[in-house]
Design a protein around this nucleic acid. Structure first.
Lengths: 293, 293
DNA sequence: CCTGCTGATTCATTTGAAGTGATTTGAAAT
DNA sequence: ATTTCAAATCACTTCAAATGAATCAGCAGG
């Protein structure tokens, strides 16, 4: 059984004429006859009564229902891939906690408004997990800190973040090495790239190991920092956005380790769904000239 | 896009291998490659990532969902027509009021028990309407009184009915012609074949016209007969079955006009759905040797 | 770094099926 | 009986699917 045959069958049923169906489907009448005949042979049942008026038999009426559902699913699939059609389906975005909290909301809102037919799935996790998930085909696109060293993964600068040292107490300069040596640091769970910055910071101060606590969410982390549990390293914008909720103080990290770029990573363009294309479009507009250079 | 291609695509996605898919579908792997390539060209998107492990791209994952729904609908349609598979779908039976009330219930019960997957639609109406409906493709099969004179309509004796004259008063012989002349008759609405029998009965008694009231349901008719409104002509079995609910009396019609056979009429066998085949089977068994001679 | 192995691609060739147009058949209307 | 319209049939063309051999790419083991 072939889609072409079903399409012809449906048209004959609709128009009640072999000739009319042939014209509508841009073929000749003998071809219509052949397709119907083939269907009838395959199913071993007469589908159409052709004595005077062309009418569906009981078997034909049973088949037409399935034809409709098969053909409509087929048409829908085709329309999903048609360029310049409004995108539908699923879009699975992976992003870091901080990106999700601060940068994504306005972009997702804009995207959803422009393409309400797309179901957005937002998965949050540390950079390492995101990359692994992307390779396993669990995300369509991800936002990660720093460039990923992987062929067939295209990357674009999305956001530039200035990292700050966050504390419950006021700081007017970088704390002394011996202070950092004994202090506790709060970081996202294993795999977060900001965590590496902590190590880097300590190293520049000649300090080696220290205690690092794992946190799953931004709220928990900022709450504990405000309570004086220890230091954290976070993007400046993130801290600013939450300052009204937590009493925390921050001090900028030195230029060379305090600058972090969040990249938008996607597979090659020819593997994109229309939803991904549309999202990249919105993203480009939202981040202006930074991406897709 | 072709069903064959989708089937191959699905198999590749499932097995994660072109070779495995080729073997399972009894073809060669170059053919698998060709089909996937064709799909990719048609949709203008890379569906499968083939570097080391064969994996679906985002576009591929979007397509596979539609593939599943298309293919499962297709498989279901095929299984619907496969002989010796348990029938599914719809069965639209047309029958006269009296047949519906008396003869069909046990048969339908038996059929439903044997084939619970079939949705039975029972349409009730007078013989003439049933035949018209059958020609218009509204019924799959009908039970009618008397043989239908129509080519490409197969008919089998289903039930033999003995007609009786029904009255609210006791009768020990056929009422006199002058009684019949002035009496009122109750009958089903236009098109019922039993109605013709009334005319026939009157004619044999040399009586011409009389008043005939139309009724839609058996209950209303028997109720009015019991109340003394007039006479009715009905199958003996029908009257017997309702005797406990209505106080009516009956007297058998003479042999030559009192014998009515209910026929089971269906289109040619090659237009049947499997549900129709199964029903004919149950019907044959239920009515023993009477049908399908 | 080479080498062999596995698995996908490419290509030339065969095969078969789909499409075409002329013609015939069949049913209904005149 | 005749005309007409629509579907079936048939011979022929054309295009696409399937095949198998050869090639190429990635990967593991030496």
């Amino acid at each position: 059984m072939q889609l072409k045959s079903l399409r012809i069958f449906r048209e004959v049923a609709r128009t009640g004429s072999f000739v009319a169906a042939a014209e509508l489907l841009h073929t000749v009448q003998s071809n219509v006859t052949a397709h119907i005949k083939k269907l009838e042979e395959e199913l071993d049942a007469k589908l159409i009564e052709r004595h005077g008026a062309v009418r569906l038999t009981s078997a034909g009426q049973a088949l037409i229902q399935y034809s409709e559902s098969i053909l409509s699913a087929h048409d829908e699939a085709l329309s999903l891939f048609r360029k310049n059609a409004s995108p539908r389906g699923r879009l699975r975005i992976g992003a870091m906690e901080t990106t999700t909290a601060l940068r994504l909301p306005p972009i997702l809102a804009k995207f959803h408004k422009a393409h309400p037919e797309v179901d957005i799935e937002l998965h949050t996790g540390p950079t390492a997990d995101l990359i692994k998930g992307m390779m396993a085909g669990q995300h369509d696109c991800i936002f990660v800190a720093g460039k990923v060293n992987h062929p067939r993964l295209h990357q674009f600068r999305a956001f530039d973040e200035q990292l700050v040292l966050v504390s419950g107490r006021h700081m007017d300069k970088m704390p002394a090495p011996q202070e950092l040596q004994t202090a506790t640091f709060l970081a996202f769970r294993q795999g977060c790239s900001y965590r590496q910055r902590i190590e880097l910071l300590l190293a520049t101060h000649g300090v080696h190991a220290t205690r690092i606590f794992d946190f799953g969410t931004l709220d928990a982390m900022l709450g504990c920092v405000a309570a004086g549990m220890g230091y954290a390293i976070l993007p400046s914008m993130t801290v600013e956005a939450h300052r009204h909720r937590f009493e925390v103080h921050s001090y900028p990290l030195p230029e060379e380790i305090g600058q972090v770029t969040t990249y938008y990573a996607v597979p090659e363009m020819d593997t994109w769904t229309p939803a991904m294309t549309a999202f990249a479009d919105v993203l480009r507009r939202a981040t202006d000239a930074q991406v897709f250079t």
